[in-house]
Simulated scan of single mutants.
Amino acid sequence: MTAIVRNKEYKNSSVKVFYKDIFELTKADLVGFDAVISAFGTFTDVTFPLYKKVAIHLINLLSGSSTRLIIIVSGAGTLLVDDKGTMAMDTPDFPHEYMGVARAAAESFFEPKTNRTYFGCM
Rank of each mutant, 00 (worst) to 15 (best):
T2S: 13
A3I: 15
A3N: 14
I4F: 06
I4T: 06
V5Y: 06
Y10F: 14
Y10N: 06
K11W: 05
N12S: 12
N12M: 09
S13R: 12
S13E: 15
S13D: 13
S13M: 10
S14R: 12
S14L: 11
S14M: 08
V15H: 09
K16M: 10
K16N: 15
F18L: 13
F18A: 06
K20E: 07
D21R: 07
L25D: 06
L25M: 09
K27N: 14
A28D: 15
D29N: 12
V31H: 10
V31P: 02
G32D: 00
F33C: 04
F33S: 02
F33H: 12
A35C: 06
I37V: 15
S38E: 02
F40A: 07
F40P: 00
F40H: 02
G41S: 05
T42D: 04
F43Q: 05
F43C: 09
D45L: 09
D45R: 07
V46S: 12
V46C: 03
V46M: 08
L50S: 02
Y51K: 00
Y51G: 00
K52N: 05
K52V: 00
A55T: 09
A55D: 07
A55F: 07
A55S: 09
I56S: 08
I56P: 03
H57A: 04
I59H: 04
N60C: 03
N60M: 05
L61Q: 04
L61D: 02
L61R: 01
L61H: 03
L61A: 04
S63E: 15
G64Y: 01
S66A: 09
T67F: 09
L69Q: 04
I72N: 08
I72V: 14
V73P: 01
V73S: 12
S74M: 11
S74K: 06
S74T: 13
S74W: 14
G77W: 05
G77H: 03
T78L: 01
L80F: 12
L80Q: 13
L80A: 11
V81C: 04
V81T: 11
D83E: 15
D83V: 08
T86M: 14
T86G: 09
M87N: 06
M87P: 03
M89A: 01
T91D: 13
T91E: 12
T91G: 10
P92T: 04
F94C: 07
P95K: 15
H96I: 14
Y98C: 04
V101Q: 06
V101Y: 08
V101L: 06
V101H: 01
A102I: 04
R103A: 08
R103E: 14
A104D: 01
E107F: 07
S108F: 02
F109V: 07
K113N: 15
K113I: 08
T114Q: 10
R116I: 06
T117Y: 03
T117N: 04
Y118F: 15
Y118E: 07
Y118G: 07
F119G: 02
G120K: 10
G120D: 05
C121A: 14
